[in-house]
Write a protein that binds this DNA or RNA. Structure first.
Length: 491
RNA sequence: GCCUCAGUAGCUCAAUGGUAGAGCAGUGGCCUCUUAAGCCAUUGGUUCAAGGUUCGAGUCCUUGCUGGGGUACCA
């Protein structure tokens, strides 16, 4: 991968390290006293003295004086060094600096003839010598040139991406703000944060293919969790009344624009409430995030989403009426089948009501749910952990999914706590598995034992954190919300 | 998975099937208000990999690798 050109650059930098050592200077010292950041200079504190530290981003040498740009966490600023202002050793050191080096400087702020706030260097310290070149991105009037166009390079070498595209940092600062906001919201609502096993002997809580691993000392196979649900509900059984976990789940499935094999999931459960309560609660949580980010609206595909508005709540037949103008009887298999045919959906005559409904929702409705909308009351067949609806048809559940911008953000329900029903549902999953459904989950006796011991009425929700980050960052790519996305190792 | 496009110097990009080139970065000079600094000189290439067609392949064909963009499943 590395050839002569790069090795030549590295060799030249290593020679400079030797020359710096010959000057009696340590190219990798231990600290530097930073007084201000670059923004102090940008704010035109003319005549004031300060010291700043950062990475050299460009050098414009003119023999006896030079300008350079220094970048730190807050931005970029111009420095000026003249042989008249520093001692000869410092100027010798300066001549050995490269783009990419970290330096610390002390001096006086002044304004150049072209009205550019600049720090005149009086003292200069090398803080870390860079021996590997970074792409030299030029910039004029805010327009960038020679930007790295290779997205793969940016994801693989995120450290370089962050150096040459410092605005990328803002997206991840935003993500951190979102996560803080969610934790604060849950904590102040008396939720307890817990950590459940990543290595699980039996996986479950979602329909997905797991990663398999092996523990040598225990001589046992483990699965990386696909969800935290089954453990968190055991804690509700145990007497925690409000618990949450925000952590990585792992699903051994395709990688695309909106899926990464490891992703961050929030799940929370509260005893003695139902899914109506949770819909209100999740809505409040989203509004709180928007408030903490000081973003009243976000934009998805040029459509503005206003978080001050109330989220919609719609049953599936209501949505089919609204979006397709069809009067649908959700209990009529033949009616649903004919509807699927009408819209050219790939279905079989033998498909269940649940599957037909799911197909219509997924193809014809969900992608068009731009404004925050709760889709409610899903078929029991596709909701193996949700309680049946209290007054509607018993083949439907008290479940909701939140859609924003055509993407699913949350999935919650009144949790099934009838142990007989729950065992039947697991057996149904198990038989689906045996007949080839790779994503159906196996029977978890430990979990069933807990439910048999008795779980209070409870509602729970799962929320995709990476997707919330995508929503507020304003990207359609999950890799822009995950700082080190999963990539194949180069051979 | 499938479809499709791409991979040339550290970075950005050229090169009708006919000697692999430029800008930036690097190196050596000149230069005390530059800012995509400038000027002179210069180093740097197994053109993603392996085969094939051809007198001749960066270019055409096959396979593979990696990635981008679609699409399917999952959040």
């Amino acid at each position: 991968m590395e050839n002569k050109s790069l090795n030549q650059i590295i060799a030249a930098r290593k020679e400079k390290i030797q020359k710096i050592l010959d000057l009696g200077i340590n190219p990798y010292p231990y600290n530097f006293k930073v007084k201000h950041s670059t923004d102090f200079i940008i704010k035109k504190n003319s005549g004031k003295k300060t010291s700043i530290a950062g990475r050299i981003m460009s050098l414009r040498r003119m023999g006896k004086a030079s300008f350079l740009n220094l970048q730190d966490m807050n931005g970029k600023v111009q420095l000026f060094i003249s042989r008249d202002d520093v001692n000869s050793k410092t100027y010798e050191l300066f001549k050995l600096l490269d783009i990419g080096d970290f330096i610390g400087v002390a001096g006086t702020v002044f304004i150049t003839k072209t009205n550019m706030p600049t720090l005149k260097i009086e003292k200069l310290e090398l803080l870390s010598k860079s021996i590997r070149p970074i792409p030299d991105v030029k910039e004029k009037d805010g327009e960038k040139f020679n930007l790295v166009s290779d997205k793969e390079f940016r994801y693989r070498k995120r450290f370089v991406d962050l150096i040459i595209n410092p605005e990328v940092k803002n997206d991840f600062i935003k993500r951190a703000t979102i996560i803080n906001s969610i934790r604060n919201f849950l904590n102040k609502n008396k939720y307890i944060e817990v950590e459940t096993p990543v290595l699980q002997p039996v996986y479950g809580g979602a329909n997905a293919k797991p990663f398999v691993t092996y523990h040598n000392a225990l001589d046992q196979q483990f699965y990386l969790r696909i969800a935290t649900e089954l453990y968190l509900k055991q804690l509700i059984v145990g007497g925690f009344e409000r618990v949450y976990e925000m952590s990585k789940d792992f699903r051994n499935e395709g990688v695309d624009r909106s899926h990464n094999p490891e992703f961050t999931m929030l799940e929370f459960y509260q005893a003695y409430v139902d899914y109506h309560y949770m819909m209100d609660f999740v809505e409040k949580m989203f509004k709180e995030i928007a408030k903490d980010l000081k973003m009243k609206t976000v934009e998805v595909d040029n459509i503005k989403i206003d978080f001050s508005k109330k989220f919609h709540r719609k049953t599936m037949d209501e949505l089919m009426k609204e979006h397709l103008n069809e009067d649908v009887d959700l209990s009529s298999q033949s009616g649903l089948f004919n509807l699927c045919k009408k819209y050219n959906l790939k279905v079989k005559k033998s498909d269940s009501i649940a599957k037909l409904i799911d197909e219509i929702m997924r193809r014809k409705i969900e992608p068009h749910l731009i404004e925050p909308t709760y889709v409610i009351n899903h078929p029991v067949e596709i909701s193996p952990l949700a309680k049946v609806h209290r007054d509607a048809d018993k083949s439907f559940t008290e479940r909701f999914e939140l859609f924003i911008g055509g993407m699913e953000f949350a999935n919650g329900f009144s949790e099934l706590n009838d142990p007989i029903d729950q065992r039947n549902r697991f057996e149904d999953q198990s038989s689906k598995r045996n007949s080839g459904d790779e994503e159906a989950f196996p029977i978890d006796e430990n979990f069933l034992e807990a439910i048999e011991t008795g779980m209070p009425p409870t509602a729970g929700v799962g929320v995709g954190i990476d997707r919330i980050a995508m929503l507020f960052i304003g990207t359609r790519w999950i890799r822009d919300s995950i700082i080190f996305p999963t990539l194949k190792t180069l051979k």
